[in-house]
């Protein structure tokens, strides 16, 4: 299969608010349209809800949430304030999302910087429009190399 030879790549980054409102979604692939990812991210919410009671080790990493055949896998991260980060990876490896941890940490750092901006309207209703945040997410996605653990 040709797809297994391609390196893993981040296809989509999404942020979902406390009340499950979509705050941010950005795609980094041409192979599928954005609406597909909206649906895909939406379905991961059930898995967050399902796993939360049994998740006792107390960290933010939800690991692999969902895999669509062999081409796409969704990984999740939940902050203490109820913000959910979801990253979809094309051509995933079997690492179980361990190497995505630095990506999630960086996304959370970028998000914290965004909400600590005094001009940011933290109303949970509107989508995030900040250009700087968009660029930071783009840089994080570009900078990700599978297998690295964010030294």
């Amino acid at each position: 299969m040709a797809s297994s030879l391609l390196p893993p790549r981040i296809a989509c980054v999404a942020i979902i608010g406390k009340k499950n409102s979509p705050l941010f979604l950005s795609t980094f692939t041409k192979s599928r349209d954005t609406l597909f990812f909206h649906f895909l991210i939406h379905t991961t919410l059930d898995i967050f809800t399902l796993r939360l009671p049994s998740k006792t080790n107390g960290d933010s990493d939800f690991g692999l949430l969902y895999a669509v055949d062999e081409e796409l896998a969704c990984y999740g991260w939940l902050t203490n304030t109820g913000i959910k980060f979801v990253v979809a990876v094309e051509n995933p490896t079997s690492s179980g999302g361990e190497d995505l941890k630095p990506v999630f940490r960086a996304l959370q750092t970028a998000y914290i910087r965004l909400v600590c901006n005094p001009f940011f309207e933290n109303d949970e209703l509107g989508a995030i429009k900040s250009k700087r945040f968009q660029k930071e997410v783009g840089d994080i996605v570009e900078g990700w190399r599978p297998g690295s653990r964010g030294e």
């Binding site: 998740k55 107390g58 960290d59 933010s60 902050t79 203490n80 304030t81 959370q108 998000y111 914290i112 909400v115 600590c116 005094p118 933290n122």
Partner: peptide, 18 residues
């Protein structure tokens, strides 16, 4: 209120889930 929200977003990271 706004300050409290920002502080928690920043300082609750890497804490065990409450």
């Amino acid at each position: 209120y706004k300050v409290g929200q920002g502080l928690v977003e920043r300082f609750s990271r890497d804490r065990p889930r409450m």
